[in-house]
Design a protein around this nucleic acid. Structure first.
Length: 567
RNA sequence: UGGGGUGUAGCCAAGUGGUAAGGCACCUGCCUUUGGAGCAGGCAUCCGUAGGUUCGAAUCCUCCCACCCCAGCCA
């Protein structure tokens, strides 16, 4: 990849958005003199492209305002979090091209401080230990239209609350036996303000703090204070937390925190033909509808990486979709366009025949091998050239030959002349059939004057086909990926059914008869390439020169399909 | 029926009182040794609806409509 070309995309006009407007105002008014953001994943799953949007936003803002962005794990629920996820999240953020420097934090680092602050709230009469069961708390919370009612334990003495909270920490109670609640307003129209739970008892092993704690703070009690401790200026989250902002502010206002951070919300990313919730992605993995979190059909960062999507393309995508507050679903084609855009400029070209049809060039000597020079990337002359072997027997794509072609088909058919890319012109003379009537091979003749793709008479040739020597080419496995779901909106299902109903049974097609030019099998796993006329393909993680495997990243735009459609 | 949000083209999205950016998709041409790429052009008399204010409104006001989120000891 050349840096020069890559930078060109990165510098495309940046969209303005309401968060930048807020930051501009804050900087102008002197409210802040630097920008500090944070990306706060919960380590309970792998990151997906929706997280990429948040990562690009937070790290991107920090970068363009010369501030910094923290990576903070929101690890307050040990029953769902694992070290494996922490590791994968760090790898994915780095792969996306962002760096948090020394600023790697964990909400669990603040457990002791959070505990001390909880005691302050108790002493101020603003928090209490509640003995009600989860069900009782649920019942007394009220509904959307009816106010809740006070817990019978709401007015315990400060001393008793202090003692009970200490004993909760000491492990004297079972899970669920008691919780610490903020004393706010059980009649608030905002349900989040109806005495929200601050601590629950969870006798569980934490990936970071081990068995030190058996009480864990909730998200609401943790997030704002963590932001304050880290001096976060702009705490950016998704829309569903809008209702939590008053609570976020309440804790910050009622605690002696070192700074006053503010929360801003934007709409999460939705993409057509895929699902984005961690719960659903987890199901796809656990129920084996895909082969793991990094299956190339997954919208995870690791899946896209394995699929061959360049990090720069994902960044470009996140820039192009913008940041706003309206719920929206972005067309998957925009993502694919970003991927093609990047790959077109940087991917090395090769020839590979996915579904081979043998061509015998009857006027070419048996056993002869000519080495034809081929450019590696027409978009980038500095990518150089390579030599491709040409022989009497070659393979072309099955779909590139038809005995009875429709109008405007200018590939190979009896009597027609086409150009072999980088090579000779050939004319089809005869289709040799198998006993069952299928085509076994096609006999052709070449024009010796046409070597290198043109002739002295300058005659125009409309069709150019890619090809691979039948004797010098290498066998390879090619995996063609398609959308994991049949519908643009996978959640659109009949009553009682779920998104799995819409899984595309043909989202993966494995071709084992593919033949590729010799140089191609030598590439390293992860190398992005273009198979001429077929699309962009990446050497899979499992790829070796002895057992080549390529994943289709995305196809090329198909102009012929459009011609047929409009016919 | 309580509270919080959002409605600009098929899909995203700028726009912050002066007469609708940009991208994707789509459509036309041109060009082409990838039916790719590239180049040129087209694509909202109108901004959810109805009123009002104003010389002037997508932008301000009012009503209405639609959609999303909230009743985890998840985040």
């Amino acid at each position: 990849m050349t840096t020069e070309v890559t930078n060109k995309t990165e510098e495309t006009i940046k969209n303005s958005n309401f968060i930048k407007d807020i930051i501009d105002e804050d900087l102008k008014s002197g409210k802040h003199n630097q920008v500090v953001t944070r990306f706060p994943p919960e380590p309970n799953g792998y990151l997906h492209v929706g997280h990429a949007k948040s990562i690009c936003l937070n790290f991107g803002l920090a970068k363009s305002y010369n501030g910094r962005c923290h990576l903070r794990f929101d690890d307050t629920n040990p029953t769902k979090e694992e070290q494996e996820y922490i590791d994968s999240i760090k790898a994915d953020v780095q792969w996306l091209g962002f760096s948090w420097g020394d600023h790697e934090y964990y909400a669990s680092n603040y457990f002791e401080q959070l505990y001390d602050w909880a005691i302050l709230l108790i002493k101020a009469g603003k928090a209490y230990v509640d003995d009600q069961t989860a069900d009782q708390i649920k019942e007394t919370r009220g509904t959307l239209t009816k106010p809740g009612t006070n817990s019978p334990w709401r007015n315990r003495s400060i001393e008793e609350n202090l003692d009970l909270f200490q004993r909760m920490r000491n492990g004297e109670f079972q899970n669920g036996e008691k919780v610490l609640r903020a004393k706010i307003d059980m009649a608030s129209p905002n349900i989040n303000m109806r005495d929200p739970v601050m601590y629950r008892i969870l006798h569980a092993h934490h990936p970071r703090t081990g068995d030190k704690w058996c009480i864990y703070p909730t998200y609401d009690y943790t997030h704002g204070q963590s932001d304050a401790i880290e001096n976060i200026t702009h705490s950016i989250c998704t829309l569903e937390f809008q209702d939590h902002r008053p609570l976020y502010d309440w804790f910050v206002e009622n605690l002696p925190v070192p700074a006053v951070p503010h929360q801003y919300e934007f709409a999460r990313l939705n993409l057509t033909y895929t699902v984005m919730s961690k719960r659903k992605l987890l199901r796809l993995v656990k129920e084996n509808h895909v082969n793991g979190w990094d299956d190339p059909r997954m919208p995870t960062i690791s899946g896209m990486r394995r699929r061959g999507y360049p990090a720069s393309a994902i960044r470009d995508f996140c820039e192009r979709i913008g940041v706003a507050k309206a719920n929206s679903t972005v067309d998957f084609q925009l993502l694919e366009n970003c991927v093609r855009d990047e790959l077109n400029r940087n991917a090395l070209r090769f020839m590979a025949v996915t579904r081979p049809l043998k061509i015998v060039i009857t006027n070419y000597p048996e056993g002869k091998v000519e080495w034809i020079e081929a450019e590696n990337n027409p978009e980038d002359p500095s990518a150089g050239t390579r030599k491709v072997p040409f022989t009497r027997e070659i393979f072309i794509e099955q779909e590139d030959f038809m005995e009875n072609p429709p109008k405007k088909y200018f590939r190979l058919f009896p009597g027609n002349e086409v150009r072999l890319k980088h090579c000779y012109y050939i004319t089809a003379n005869e289709a040799i059939k198998n006993p069952d009537g299928s085509i076994k091979e096609v006999h052709c003749t070449l024009d010796p004057e046409s070597r290198s793709g043109s002739t002295p008479d300058g005659r125009r040739i409309k069709g150019t086909l890619h090809w691979v020597s039948a004797t010098e080419g290498k066998k390879a496995e090619i995996r063609l990926y398609d959308h994991l779901f049949l519908l643009a909106n996978p959640d659109k299902v009949e009553e009682g059914k779920d998104f799995l109903e819409n899984i595309n049974p043909e989202s993966l097609e494995v071709l084992t008869d593919a033949v590729v030019e010799p140089d191609l099998v030598k590439v390293a796993p992860g190398t992005a390439t273009q198979f001429l006329r077929m699309g962009y393909f990446v050497a899979d993680l499992s790829h070796t020169p002895e057992k080549p495997v390529f994943n289709r990243t995305v196809g090329l735009k198909d102009g012929w399909a459009k011609v047929q459609r409009n016919q």
